[in-house]
Design a protein around this nucleic acid. Structure first.
Lengths: 151, 151
DNA sequence: CGATATTGCTCAGTATGCTGACTATCAGTA
DNA sequence: TACTGATAGTCAGCATACTGAGCAATATCG
């Protein structure tokens, strides 16, 4: 019987678990209540003003049914606005608010610190190598999940 | 602004997302409906007959509040039995059933195939290196999540 | 022995993620 | 233009994960 530690799937779960915990702790320490998922969505909306939900989902590889709730919560927190698109009445355009911008600015150091902490067991070179290998494996498996990356 | 692809946390999420999808697809293809989490719990119960829930949680790094539901579903599927411990009336002893054993045996090839597929973009050497780096990062971050590994 | 702390487990509540189904709308074509 | 297919979004339902609270039972220590 293979050990859990020889299963990339198990290791993936463990690493993600730690990554989320570190992110929440760092962001919480500076007084904000934002999840990794909400952060990625907010940052992507800021970088792509007026984008619709499907495009956003493709840019960060979220399922379209997941993104609904994430956006609900960002709207509820006053960090973004959701309004009907004038060009396509099915679509919703997303825009970051001033408060969203302020929040992003304030938590950026905590987010960066979180990324360092979750790699703290590795040397700089090893951290780079881990990210390179993850990127490569992810690229090869992109189409295997329901929420692939779309550029 | 850092790109998502430079964020280990984001890469962790993506890799895990793919890993789960591949696992479910492979196991589903041979006619079983078992999640990665349920599989790990089942295999660990088989390897450690009569263990209690807290010990199980520690061995696979699950939160104790998560394991309750996982065990409920394994019991409901008839794969394990949960009974009160004679030594400690707070604890529940877990035991795999014959059907649990049969299920494990039948899905093992699918589980192994899933592990290969999620690394299909990498050479054998790269796959080994990815697992080594993940293990190292996880070891250093073990205490940072609410559900650390306990041996 | 008795008060206190700790432990095993559960529950309510919240937030991802997914499957599958549905509505509304848009796009392409006969 | 009417039909057909595809697309944007939502919803119900299920399965992780976690926070925080609580109960029952055990362990520990004065």
């Amino acid at each position: 019987m293979k050990d859990n530690n020889d299963m990339p799937g198990h290791l993936a779960r463990r690493f993600q678990q730690i990554a989320v915990a570190v992110f929440l702790a760092e962001v919480g320490d500076v007084g904000f209540d934002l999840t990794p998922v909400q952060y990625a969505a907010l940052a992507t909306i800021k970088a792509n003003p007026g984008l619709d939900q499907v495009t956003l989902a493709g840019l960060i590889a979220y399922d379209r049914t997941t993104i609904t709730g994430v956006i609900d919560r960002l709207v509820q927190k006053g960090l973004i606005e959701r309004r009907a698109s004038p060009r396509d009445r099915r679509a919703r355009e997303l825009e970051i608010t001033d408060e969203g911008r302020r929040t992003l600015r304030k938590i950026t150091p905590a987010v960066e610190s979180a990324q360092r902490i979750m790699l703290r067991g590795l040397s700089a070179k090893e951290g780079e190598e881990l990210m390179r290998l993850l990127r490569k494996a992810i690229a090869a498996g992109n189409e295997l999940s329901r929420a692939p990356l779309r550029e």
